[in-house]
Each structure stands twice: as structure tokens, then as C-alpha cells.
Design a protein around this nucleic acid. Structure first.
Lengths: 338, 338
DNA sequence: ATGAAAGCGCTAACAC
DNA sequence: GTGTTAGCGCTTTCAT
């Protein structure tokens, strides 16, 4: 059985296709009797409207495109989950693409999605991305676009991002209030805005508390557990171990745990560790990670909501929405109790 | 700037729209000179073909629909990641939906995707699903569909599933070969095919080794960490602790770890634990989990490959593809060294 | 080598 | 109340 069309129903009922079209959309033109007949035929024949045809006509697809760097990272999969959830409640469809952290793939994804005539775009920049050409062209085409989690600063699109600087500063400050002064930071890359914001919160907290910065305590590396592992080993072999390490994310914290344990050090006894993070993994770390908690669902929901708002013309583009973070004390940093 | 069309290019070049259409698709009819001109104009005007119009005409969308129970579960997000990856290399788009483990939402998702005229469907059944009506209708409509990870047995669609029975049987057998006889199984739900297959592999291994089954050592509960936690506590308070526990998945293992540690028991000294699992979490468990390793990317890749094959008419529907699992000894079960 | 005509399935404007 | 006409942007015969 092939797909059946409105005209098939029309033929079966001996009326014109337009009558059917109108009946389906409950147009006042059509009599109740006719509508009933049509509905029966729809049921009986298993008619499902061809959205493609509708979309061509309406010049609208009720579809949004998502470009995400990676879905294996649970952080992103939570965001996408929340986006799909919210889109579905609003009767929008979701076309999903993955950039694999590559600028070139990201660009192709966006072009493909524009070809598919999505009503709007949700993008989280790849770590590589430095060129904004493709975004300029989206701007020219008036395509609603919202950045989430990672964004360009100098483009007229809305952005939904965590308030990392405030989160980091608050956390480091709380740790300092507990009496710590020797606090290192495993900083990811300063080439990314994420890395910069977190580092700047850290530095701000030290500065406000009149604690000097030590470059050797702010090693850059990356965002994976291997990077935390390496950074810890280097720090250890330098003989300059701090009291507490603030890691740029939970994967880096994981690596630091591993290296610390291998070196025969206990957490938090010999060294405390805390960092940005978000989900159940950090509950099961031993000891539980003290964390600046990020809720990826919040960012996903907010971003989709903002985008749909812009599409429907009820929200203004170019907004910056900051998502709050919460510092949660757990076992991996000792509370001295000052 | 609005979207521009082929006719705009045609106007600019003073030729007919058909000439442009042909030039774009490198049709032999058109002169090199003309093609160059067209390409320049495309570049200059920023023309991007309207795929919606193409799709309506071609009666094909080069889009596949995915229905997945949940994206927060890393197990599924890995699968989806692999699917998107593979689809992209084959120039297919992906429409993503999430069923939240609800039969009703799953059904609506499938209807929506059919309305969007996807070329094929990839579905992982929700835990609730018992009715196959919607799948019967997909069958009638000749829509290629491939089940992944969770499937109906009695429908003429292809299925890509882990060979859990073999995996469980092999693992339990290996453990028995190490000299263990007192092995319990935290079994999830026997209402799911996953639960049944894993349990049946466990039972088969015991039977073949002439070890009696003890119902009190095969508690059912669920698939979350709380369930492993509860099951362990019950077992402990019954005073009937086995030497080794085989858990239906890694989350249940996690719960068992937690309960064991709270009870002051060491792993693997007082009790060994192993189970189905797949990703980095199990590397960071302390001790590392001995695991029947499942690779969700394999299932995702294979399922997408099978579906696209069926769409293109080169693969036969109704196939069952079994994905192999690998038993990996790590620290959570002692190898006695027999 | 180029173009005119028709159609993909649906909707909107305007008759009858 | 129901039907006719035209068009969304593109492709595919079939003429010229």
C-alpha cells in the first residue's frame, strides 16, 4: 500500500479535493455531515497528511536544526534530550546533527539544515571554530539562531550560557573562606571562552582575597580525563602540590583522582579536589566530588524556548541568557569549619 | 534577505529556470560556459537549494526517523551518536524523537515521522510497549523499519540486538570455571526481553555446570541503581550472601557496590560483582567492574547501515543481526586462577 | 543547447 | 456548501 492523498479520499467520496482539505482543517465552509464522512474515510484509508507538501506551501517547516559537538558526552545528550522534549510539546520537529568538534563539519551541518529549510537553528560551537562566515550568512538570511553553552560574543544572535565566571568565583571564594589559600586550577584551554570564563572567576576570587596567582598552578591542558591525569602528575613531580585543586570539569577531576590515588595520596586528606560537573557520575566518585553543579537540561530547555520564541516573533534576538550554577559541598574537599 | 530560488538566478542570467536546474545538476545538455555562469551566480547570490521542494518532487526525503526511549541514558546517546554519524556519511538526515519510555508517545512519534515522510524508521521500543498496531500499519505502508536493542519478535522487521543470552552464559561460565558455584543474579524485570535473555543465559550456564538454581538468588527489581542497592540489602539481611553477584546492568552493579560498602564488605574480598555494562563509568568504579562489555556504537552503526540498505533495496528486511559482547575480567571479581 | 508544460500534495483566494 | 484556479520550488519529459 502506497501513501494515499487527499485526492484519493475525494475520489472515494465523490467530492473535490479542496472539500477534503477544508474538512480536514475543520473549515467552517464545510457541513458537519461532510466532515464526518471525511473523517471516516481518513480512518478507514489510513490517511496521514504529507507534511512535506504542507511545508512547501506554508514556507515553514516547524522543524528546528540542532548542531552539537558530540553526543557521547552526557553533558550534551542531556541538553539535546531537554530540547527534543520541549520542541515536541510545541509541535516542532528536530533535525539532529553532530559536528564532532570540527569546524568544517559544523559548517556543512548548518548548510544542510538551511537547505532543509529549518525554521531555526540551535548551535553549540565546536572547540575548533574561529570563523564566523557561516553565521554571518545565517544572519543575512534572517534565520533565527540561538547559541547554547558555547557562543560567539560578537554576533547578533541570542546565547544561552552558564554563568561560569560567577560560579567559579563563588566556589573558589567559598573554599577560601574555609581557610584555604593554596588553590590550583586545571584550566582546560584558554582558547575557549569556557576555559577563559572559569579561569577568570578563579583569578578574580584570589585577587579579591589578596592571594597571589602562580602560573605553575594554572596549567592548561584540555577537557578530558587524561588531561587532569597528566596535569596532576606534573604538579606532583614538581614537588609543589597545593592544598586544593579546582578542575575545569568533572572529567579532568576524574583524571586527577586517578593520578592522586596512584601516587598514594588520599582525597581530601592530602589534596582536595573540586570542579565543574553535573551528573550522577560525580555522585559515585569516591569520595563524592564537591561540585559547581551545572544543569544541562536547564540550558537545553531555555535555548529551545528562546529559539521558538524568536521564530514565533515573541522573543527578541540578541539576548544573553545566563544559567545559574550551584556550589555543592561534598566529600572531596574538607570543610575546615571556619 | 529572503531565500532565493532557481528562478531568481535564471532571471539574473536571462535564461529559463530549467536551464539553471539542469546546470546545477551538471546535466550534459548544458554548455560549460552556461554552467560556469550559473555557478558564479549561485556563489554570488548565496543560493541554497530548497530540499523541501526537491523532496516533494522526488517522493523521497533522504531522512530517517529515530525513536529512542531516553537520551539521558548514555547507552542510548552513544547509539544515536553512531547513527547520526553514519547517516551523515551517507547523505541522510536524521529526525530525532524521544518516547520517554511511554507507549503512547512512541506511537505519536512514529505517526509524526511518517507524516514527515521519512524514508525509514529506527526504533528502540519503550519498556511499556505491548501493542504492535502502529508497527502493523508501518508494515502496510511499506516503510522500512529496523528495531534496535529492544524489539518485537513476531513482526517482519529487521532487528539489531545484543546477543545477551550468549554473553551472559559465557560470562557466568567463565566465572564458574574459576571455581565459583555460589553465584546470584540481580535480574531486572522478566517482563522485558532483555531481562529474560540475560537471565536465561545465567540459568543455562548453571544448568550446564550442574549447579542448582535458587529462586532467592535471582531477585527481580529493575534496571536502576536503587534496585541493585535494595536487592543487595535484602540479600545481606537474609544472611544468604553468595560469593559473586551477576547484575543485569552497570547501574544495578553501582547500587550493589554502594550497599556492599555501606555494609562494611569489601569487593571482591567479601563478595565479587560483575555485570553487563559499557562505558567509562565502569572504568572508574572502585574496584573496576568486571564486565560483559556492550558497545552501543556497534548497535547504532549496524542498525543504521541495515536500514539504509533496506531503503536502497540492497538489504533484505526481516533480518536479525546479533551484536557480540565481550567478557572483560577486571578487579571486582577475584580470579582464583584455576 | 535551451525552453515549455506538467506534476509532486497541499492550501488560499475567489467564484458558483 | 462546494468547486475552480493558481502557486509553493523543483524536476522530468518532450519539443524546438
Amino acid at each position: 500500500m502506497e501513501n494515499i492523498r487527499q485526492s484519493d479520499i475525494a475520489k472515494a467520496l465523490n467530492v473535490s479535493r479542496v472539500t477534503v482539505s477544508k474538512a480536514l482543517r475543520d473549515h467552517p465552509d464545510i457541513s458537519q455531515e461532510m466532515k464526518l464522512k471525511v473523517r471516516e474515510a481518513v480512518e478507514h484509508l489510513g490517511y496521514i497528511p504529507n507534511q512535506i507538501a504542507r511545508q512547501l506551501n506554508a514556507k515553514r517547516t516547524y522543524t528546528v536544526g540542532i548542531v552539537v559537538p558530540d553526543l557521547e558526552n552526557n553533558f550534551f545528550s542531556y541538553m539535546v534530550d531537554a530540547m527534543v522534549d520541549y520542541a515536541t510539546t510545541q509541535k516542532y520537529h528536530v533535525l539532529l546533527t553532530v559536528s564532532r568538534e570540527k569546524q568544517q563539519i559544523e559548517k556543512e551541518n548548518i548548510e544542510n539544515l538551511i537547505g532543509m529549510r529549518v525554521d531555526g537553528l540551535l548551535v553549540c560551537l565546536s572547540q575548533e571554530t574561529t570563523e564566523d562566515g557561516i553565521f554571518r550568512m545565517a544572519e543575512k538570511r534572517n534565520i533565527p539562531l540561538v547559541f547554547f553553552d558555547r557562543a560567539f560574543d560578537n554576533l547578533p544572535f541570542s546565547r544561552v550560557i552558564f554563568d561560569d565566571k560567577a560560579g567559579a568565583e563563588d566556589a573558589v571564594n567559598q573554599v577560601i573562606q574555609q581557610g584555604y589559600t593554596r588553590i590550583a586550577h586545571f584550566a582546560g584551554y584558554s582558547g575557549t571562552s569556557i576555559g577563559r570564563r572559569r579561569s577568570s572567576g578563579y583569578q578574580e576570587a584570589l585577587r579579591k582575597n589578596k592571594i597571589g596567582l602562580k602560573p605553575e598552578w594554572m596549567p592548561e591542558g584540555g577537557f578530558e580525563w587524561k588531561d587532569g591525569y597528566e596535569a596532576f602528575r606534573k604538579l606532583k613531580s614538581s614537588g609543589q602540590l597545593p592544598e586544593v585543586i579546582f578542575t575545569v570539569n568533572d572529567r579532568v577531576a576524574l583524571g586527577a583522582y586517578k593520578a592522586a590515588k596512584e601516587a598514594g595520596l588520599t582525597i581530601p586528606g592530602d589534596v582536595g579536589i573540586f570542579g565543574f560537573g553535573f551528573h550522577e557520575i560525580t555522585d559515585f566518585l569516591d569520595p563524592q566530588l564537591t561540585v559547581i553543579n551545572q544543569d544541562p537540561r536547564k540550558i537545553g530547555q531555555t535555548a529551545m524556548n528562546q529559539l521558538l520564541g524568536e521564530i514565533e516573533g515573541v522573543s527578541v534576538s540578541g539576548s544573553t541568557l545566563m544559567i545559574e550554577e550551584e556550589f555543592i559541598w561534598r566529600k572531596s574537599v574538607k570543610q575546615k569549619g571556619y
